[in-house]
Amino acid sequence: MNKHLVANMTWQEYQSKVKDNILILPIGSIEQHGPHLPLGVDAMLAEKISLSIAEKVNAVVAPTVSYGYKSLPASGGGPLFPGTIDLKGSTVISLVYDLLEEFLHDGWQKILMVSCHYENEAFLAEAADLIMRNQKEEYPKILLSNWWDNLSEEVIPQVFDEVKFPGWALEHAAIAETSMMMHFAPELVREELIVDEGIDNPPTYQSFPPSPSLIPPSGCLHTARSSSAEKGRLIIENSTDNIVSFLEKEFFAKVTITD
């Protein structure tokens, strides 16, 4: 039983954490990730990364928001594939607003939202802004971040040592996510189904409805070739350390020293 998960706590245990801990809210999505990864990659990574952060600071992890904003064709495959379950932007804002409101009502002063779905960010930012825009004091404070913006520059060439980095939008279900899943949940990675294909010339515009010819039949936007559990470990450790660094700055978080 993980001691950092709010869902595993009694209400008294939960209440005892409010004053001196950070609350982490993981947010992902349910969307296609090619033939080799499960639909819940974004939600799984959001929770695993949040727990990795919680191991290093005084933090607890709220139940993961597993649904997210629409998966767009050139950054997630879009609605062209069964199993991609999308929310409207207004729904994401309302859902996250309501959750933040409840956490603030419980007394949380330090909240971190960890997003692992590329398309979520503007709507999560809107929810946080709406609930905090009239506040004059420094606390309570809400932070929003993700793993890809917290990778150090020197790490990216180590991850993309065989395949050129295509940009984060096309990295959907490709080397980074596949490697992280190999690190966290290798039993869920169908390595034999990895295909070496993607979008050669991503459009500079969006089309409604999306064109079925834009995405390869596999749903992959870029190759996952050269993925490895070691690269996943490197991504997680580096991004987690960098997130902990800004938490120390913003929240004066106490780092837990582990062996």
Rank of each mutant, 00 (worst) to 15 (best):
V244I: 00
E153L: 09
L151W: 01
A185H: 15
S16L: 14
I24M: 10
N242W: 03
E230S: 15
K48F: 02
N58L: 06
P38T: 01
L45K: 09
H105N: 13
Y205L: 05
V61S: 08
W11E: 00
L39Q: 11
W168E: 11
R225D: 03
I199P: 00
Q206E: 04
G232R: 14
D200K: 13
I131W: 07
T178R: 02
S226Y: 09
V255F: 11
W108M: 08
A54E: 08
M182D: 03
N146W: 07
S90L: 10
I194Q: 00
S94Y: 12
H117C: 13
E13A: 15
E197M: 13
V195G: 01
E171H: 14
F103C: 05
L130S: 09
Y139R: 13
G34I: 09
Y205S: 01
M44D: 03
P73E: 08
I243R: 01
I199Y: 02
S218F: 10
I53Q: 12
E192I: 02
S179A: 00
E191P: 07
Y139T: 09
D149K: 13
P216M: 12
Y205F: 08
E250H: 11
P209K: 15
P82K: 05
D86W: 04
A185N: 15
S50I: 08
L25P: 00
G107E: 09
V244Y: 00
M44L: 14
K136I: 14
L104I: 11
K141E: 05
Q32V: 09
V163W: 07
P212F: 08
L124P: 09
Q32N: 11
L130F: 11
L234F: 04
I236C: 06
I85M: 10
G219C: 04
D259E: 15
G89Y: 03
P166Q: 11
G89D: 04
E47P: 03
Q109H: 05
E101G: 02
A224W: 02
E162W: 11
V255R: 15
N242I: 00
L100T: 00
E138H: 14
V244W: 00
V60M: 06
I49C: 07
V96H: 09
G78Y: 10
K164W: 14
W147Y: 11
L23P: 02
L72Q: 12
M44V: 02
T223Q: 09
A253K: 02
H172K: 11
Q109T: 01
D161S: 14
S90V: 06
M181A: 03
T178E: 00
L221Q: 01
K141V: 05
E197C: 08
K164S: 11
A125E: 15
I175S: 02
V61Q: 07
W11S: 08
S152G: 10
P166G: 04
T256C: 07
